[in-house]
């Protein structure tokens, strides 16, 4: 690889929630085509960072630069409304899945494609999602609220894919899932990555996340404590002690 091709760069990010500083001066960058993960305990600021990128946080200072396609000039996306992010190629699968329980699986997916008008493309992407998650196709006319936790997670990821993202952000996709399903979700993340989508993954399951990640940041109380490739951090004794159970 020659010069690093940066898709997203966060500079000196501070996030405030009514006087509480959830993120305190974070710098990080995401290389195009990579899987980057943010690992840390509850309250370390992982979700705050991802939500700031998505435009969901108001009290944010610093800067977030994004370049959608290779060669695009990086532009600041800080302060843009969340509804514009998906139009710029950034999709978020939010923490807790946030499936719309009263809409069918199909409608949830169509909502993910709301910003698009290319009917044929939407249809093609829906088939792609169904191919990735055959369970969703079987249940396409079922209400989102009737799905199991694992199926809802698949739907949340599928819905994010329907926005045709170049950067997909997944907030705690393995939360509350059985070990077998966690494995399945991570396999899917790798498949999505292989199709050329850059992935930003927020996880408490440090072992699984570091295993798939090209690069990782470890957050502690709003600051980056450590960074490195997934392999480096997996081998790091500090990380092993704090996050991987020794």
């Amino acid at each position: 690889m020659s010069t690093p091709d940066i898709m997203l760069e966060i500079k000196d990010l501070y996030v405030n929630y009514g006087g509480i500083c959830a993120v305190q001066g974070v710098n990080l960058s995401i290389q195009r085509g990579s899987i980057v993960t943010l690992v840390g305990a509850n309250g370390a600021g992982k979700s705050s960072i991802i939500r700031s990128i998505a435009g969901l946080n108001r009290q944010v200072t610093g800067d977030i630069l994004f370049s959608r396609k290779q060669g695009d000039k990086p532009e600041s996306i800080l302060g843009l409304k969340p509804e514009n992010m998906v139009r710029r190629g950034i999709s978020l699968s939010p923490e807790g899945r946030r499936i719309l329980p009263h809409l069918t699986v199909r409608e949830n997916l169509l909502l993910g494609a709301y910003s698009r008008n290319d009917r044929a493309g939407i249809q093609r992407d829906m088939e792609r999602v169904y191919e990735l998650f055959p369970r969703l196709e079987e249940r396409s006319w079922q209400k989102g609220g009737t799905l199991s936790g694992g199926e809802q997670q698949m739907l949340a990821v599928g819905r994010a894919l329907m926005g045709q993202p170049d950067l997909i952000m997944l907030d705690e996709p393995s939360l509350g899932l059985a070990p077998l399903l966690v494995k399945e979700i991570f396999a899917i993340i790798e498949r999505i990555h292989q199709t050329g989508v850059t992935v930003l993954l927020v996880e408490q399951n440090a072992y699984a996340a570091l295993n798939v990640a090209d690069y990782a940041y470890i957050l502690e109380v709003g600051r980056i404590a450590l960074e490195g490739t997934g392999k480096e951090l997996l081998a790091n004794p500090q990380v092993r002690a704090a996050y991987l159970g020794g």
Binding site: K81, P82, M85, L92, L100, H102, L111
Partner: peptide
């Protein structure tokens, strides 16, 4: 049901 998620979807 959920304004925030709906906005995330580009609405």
């Amino acid at each position: 049901k959920d304004i925030e998620t709906t906005r995330l979807m580009g609405v």
